[in-house]
Write a protein that binds this DNA or RNA. Sequence first.
DNA 1: AACGCGCCCAACCGCACCTCG
DNA 2: ACGAGGTGCGGTTGGGCGCGT
Length: 294
Amino acid sequence: MGRTPCCDKRGLKKGPWTAEEDEILVNFIKKNGGHGSWRSLPKLAGLHRCGKSCRLRWTNYLRPDIKRGPFTSEEEKLVIQLHAILGNRWAAIAAQLPGRTDNEIKNLWNTHLKKRLVSMGLDPQTHEPVTSRCPIDKANASVFTRHMAQWESARLEAEARLSRESSLFSPSNAKADSDYFLRIWNSEVGESFRKIHKEDAKTACCSPISPGSAITTEVALNPVGSSTPASNLNEEFECRSSSKAYAEDVKNGCDSSSSNDLEDSSDTALQLWLDFPINNDMSFMEGNSYICPL
DNA sequence: AACGCGCCCAACCGCACCTCG
DNA sequence: ACGAGGTGCGGTTGGGCGCGT
């Protein structure tokens, strides 16, 4: 199917935007109460740019709600954690960081966070230690051991919680500093997480679940299609997603449409997730405490 | 001062997805 | 159901800038 040629094939301007062009674009959008059709915008506004270029300039730079300045350590931690769940889905990650654009987060990842993980001996795609290529020495192993101990502790706590009343998971009990995770759960990320649960439930119905096996969320956690074994984080999330309540759902009903129980269990799984990582020691993520002796 | 190098980030490119007729 | 147009998204690029020599 014939695609309309973009700017370069029609003699339209490319490259950095001038202040005048920015002004024209902002004024046009303000005046019209929105951008309307991006394709027709340049013509109507009198810009010699393609619509795509205008959209990018607006969404990544000119939008009034864009937060400028360096990322805070909290934002960086959140990006790392979301990346572990979502992979390179920058737009989805950006949706959880108000005022930040996907491009900005992508740049942050590629220029800082990726290198930081690599320097710590972690695979930036899977977030698991690259033990084969970069053996972890004793000192650095303790960092991971500590981290894993925290997750294991959280897992045990999760088991205990699951055996208690569902009231534990009511919003009134949510920790204040988990607020933004609640936002996540109510957004695309949570949707994606729940969706995966449902798909897994369906799959689980078609193939017997071996006793004690976890209901994997690897699809969600390894969205880049890694063929490597479940990462530490994956296992940790498995702990959450394979809660008893969820396993019960799978056993009791495979119909993804009758999902009240499923929703509840997914909420439970989320709550378990919410309760753990950000409040715990992510300090090993800060700075280059782990130097991989490559 | 001149040069080389690496880093950063705005912008581009092409594909995928969505919507509508 | 299908095709075309519009938009969104992720990967990549290249130019500006700072720093070291």
